[in-house]
Amino acid sequence: MSTSNPQAVTLNVNGVPYPVAIDTSRTLSTVLRNELGLTGTKEGCDDCECGACMVLLDGRPINSCSYLAVQTQGREVTTVEGLASQDDLAPLQRNILAAGGVQCGFCTPGMLMSATALLDENPTPTEEEIRIGLSGNLCRCTGYARILDSVIQTSVEINS
């Protein structure tokens, strides 16, 4: 076993600096949820398989259950809490609700993060590109079609 010896670091999450003292072995998902109280990020498998823990690191998706929190120092983390503005849901959030792409909701934060990164990089993805973009996110409820529809709808809105 490794010795417990907390490291003092500052994590930047959704534009806010959080000074924390954490064990080096802690993964980003546990720190977000248990130290910072940002429980939007979910842990499904805690083994890099399901994508429920997806967050953005400098704008690109990573599995936060399998990324050491201290390794994000000096980088910007975005979680699902960072998508909406004070008053409004982000267009993708609105569209996934309207399309019926949320059932139990457990996969939703991770789906939103992967889809947000995809649309930022490629505002006009093909259906195939959306499938690849979401290929690290499992959903056991919706059958994916409505989630796909909401990404397509958001892409149409961005480009009109």
Binding site: M1, S2, T3, T24, S25, T27, D46, D47, C48, S66, Y67, L68, Q71, G74
Partner: peptide, 28 residues
């Protein structure tokens, strides 16, 4: 060394191994 950690961190799970005592992140 740890780069993306996609082998190292995932491999340290479920009794498969422990993380090294001292890591040096090489991704910057």
């Amino acid at each position: 060394p740890i780069a993306g950690g996609t082998d190292l961190v995932v491999g340290s799970r479920q009794g498969k191994g422990t993380l090294p005592e001292h890591l040096i992140a090489i991704d910057r």
